[in-house]
Design a protein around this nucleic acid. Structure first.
Length: 508
RNA sequence: GCGGCUAUAGUUUAAUGGUAAAACCUCUGCCUUCCAAGCAGGUGUCGUCGGUUCGAUUCCGACUAGCCGCUCCA
């Protein structure tokens, strides 16, 4: 058994499999698709739910120090002002189509060159200590160049956000000095906007959240007052977030609607943040391994201090080796007390904890592990996808496509297969086992085609085990089935009790 | 948002200025005592809109979507 290397078109193979087997469809496909959005089909929905459930179980239910939260997707607009998202991304940008330079529209100034009441042209300048002076000089230069007689009116500097549509084509690009290459200003704020209520005006503007984290900060006091929590403790949330990405790319890796699993771990202001930061990096890597991602594909990237936001103490990304490159999977950020501080200031409501030991109030610091469900799902598909050359009895080599998903997250845990479908005794025993398993697990019953075809079909969707009800089951004592294992294709006999025990141990 | 390439069945691909083919997949039936066997049958708006033409899936344009490279990525 050998594994061929399909890496060059691995993504194509995965996208194709995802579509063919009902994991992931392009959104609104019958209308031509919709860039940046995806639908999860029957198997994809199961897989995604399993990823979420595993995370929630390990992060929240099996711990004493972390509680869950489900906050609303649309929050008060002031949340996003306080968090910095509104200011951080409302900058309208202007492109120069010739030089490919990009300018912030509010930093690119222009002025009409008016001579004796007639507009002779336009000049532009980047924001500087003497923007008006530069524009004036440029205007005089233009007047000389065009050899226009008359009196030059002092320039009136405007920035590009004030440019009329018919002016834009006449304003020269600072890069080329020639007009015609600048685009109209475009807003690059990645937050989706909507209006709340009947009025559609500035006062009704609201945003779809671009991250779930702010919910934990805004509800911090509510959780502290009701959750019986003591530092250090965490608040975790799973939910959809929305970013109007400029370039959605790489299948579901960067999409405009995605699902996050975030946890804010609050610590004492005097606590050793670096120790907790390291703790959570290790925890996250361990969790990724527990759902089947190989260590060989995982790495860490420390954001350089110089590039960090001023409040950030450190950010480490757990990277995953996707077919299209090593990319961020899970960001673990030490954010100080910036977020709670911002909300305290903006809302006027202190976001403090009382320290019984020192009798002092303080704003806790936070470590934030934030990961995208869709990115994990893509990672497990990429890591699990394999095409193997297997030999049949006659020695002919044929291809086997197998999705090596961890039993924890596999959409189907067990397929129940009667060896033959036209033998009533086999079908009856299979049905009975299927119905019993169904009460506890995601299982699949299949009697179509021959047994080999059914095994391969389950291989392709990542089902870890198949049980086949054969003539030994019904004719020999012990009521045993054939258990066929996905990765090794090995078979052994197993009883119903042993099967349930196996599932109990492997699916958690 | 810019540039290049692309769009035919669920998937992978053909052919063609005269209403489209194959393989695989899938579904139904038969058969089948352990790894995609066989037999019979079913399932198709050529991405959308427009133009040229007697006639367009084919030529042209726009749009939409996808891929690659820029750009962006708090």
């Amino acid at each position: 058994m050998s594994t061929s290397a399909p890496s060059a078109n691995l993504m194509e193979a995965i996208v194709s499999l995802a579509k063919r087997r009902g994991f992931i469809f392009p959104s609104s496909e019958i209308y031509g698709g919709f860039n940046g959005f995806f639908d999860y089909g029957p198997l994809g929905a199961e897989l995604k739910k399993n990823i979420r459930d595993c995370w929630w179980a390990d992060m929240v239910r099996r711990r004493d120090d972390i509680v869950g939260l489900e906050s609303s997707i649309i929050m008060h607009p002031k949340v996003w002002e306080a968090s910095g998202h509104v200011a951080g991304f409302t900058d309208p940008l202007v492109d120069c189509k010739v030089s490919k330079q990009r300018y912030r529209a509010d930093q690119l100034f222009f002025a009409a060159v008016v001579v004796d009441g007639k507009t002779a042209g336009y000049v532009s300048a980047l924001e500087s200590e003497d923007t008006v002076g530069e524009l004036q000089a440029a205007a005089e230069s233009l007047k000389r160049k065009k050899a226009i007689q008359g009196t030059l009116v002092p320039v009136l500097a405007k920035d590009m956000t004030e440019a009329q549509p018919d002016e834009i084509a006449l304003i020269p690009s600072p890069a080329t000095g020639e007009p015609g290459s600048l685009t109209p200003p475009r807003s690059f704020n990645m937050m989706f906007q909507t209006n709340v209520g009947a009025m559609t005006d500035a006062s009704s503007v609201a945003y779809l959240r671009p991250e779930t984290a702010q919910g934990m900060f805004v509800d911090f006091k509510n959780v502290v007052d009701t959750g019986r929590v003591k530092l250090p403790f965490g608040i975790a949330q799973i939910g959809k977030s929305f970013r109007n990405e400029i370039t959605p790319r790489n299948f579901i890796f960067r999409s405009r609607e995605f699902e996050q699993m975030e946890m804010e771990f609050f610590i004492h202001e005097d606590d050793d943040w670096a120790k907790w930061h390291r703790h959570w990096i290790d925890w996250c890597k361990g969790w990724l391994r527990s759902i089947g991602l190989p260590d060989s594909h995982l790495s860490e990237y420390d954001h350089p201090k110089a590039k960090l936001a001023f409040y950030s103490k450190g950010t480490t990304d757990i990277m995953f080796q996707y077919p299209f490159g090593v990319q961020e999977l899970w960001g673990i950020a030490a954010r100080g007390n910036y977020d709670l501080g911002q909300h305290a200031q903006a809302s006027g409501k202190p976001q403090e904890i009382f320290d019984e030991a020192t009798k002092k109030k303080f704003v806790p610091h936070v470590i934030e592990p934030a990961v995208g469900v869709d990115r994990i799902l893509l990672a497990v598909l990429c890591a699990g996808y394999a095409e193997e050359d297997v030999k049949d009895e006659k020695g002919n080599v044929e291809k086997r496509t197998v999705l090596r998903l961890s039993p924890r997250i596999a959409p189907v845990k067990v397929a129940v297969l009667p060896l033959l479908k036209n033998k009533e005794a086999l079908v009856g025993r299979s049905r009975a086992l299927y119905q019993k398993l169904q009460r506890r697990h995601a299982v699949f019953y299949d009697d179509g085609g021959n047994i080999g075809r059914r095994y391969r079909r389950q291989d392709e969707i990542g089902t870890p085990w198949c049980v086949t009800i054969d003539f030994d089951t019904i004719e020999k004592p012990g009521d045993t089935f054939t258990l066929r294992e996905r990765d090794s294709m090995a078979q052994r006999r197993i009883t119903e009790a042993e099967l349930f025990a196996l599932l109990d141990e492997q699916v958690y």
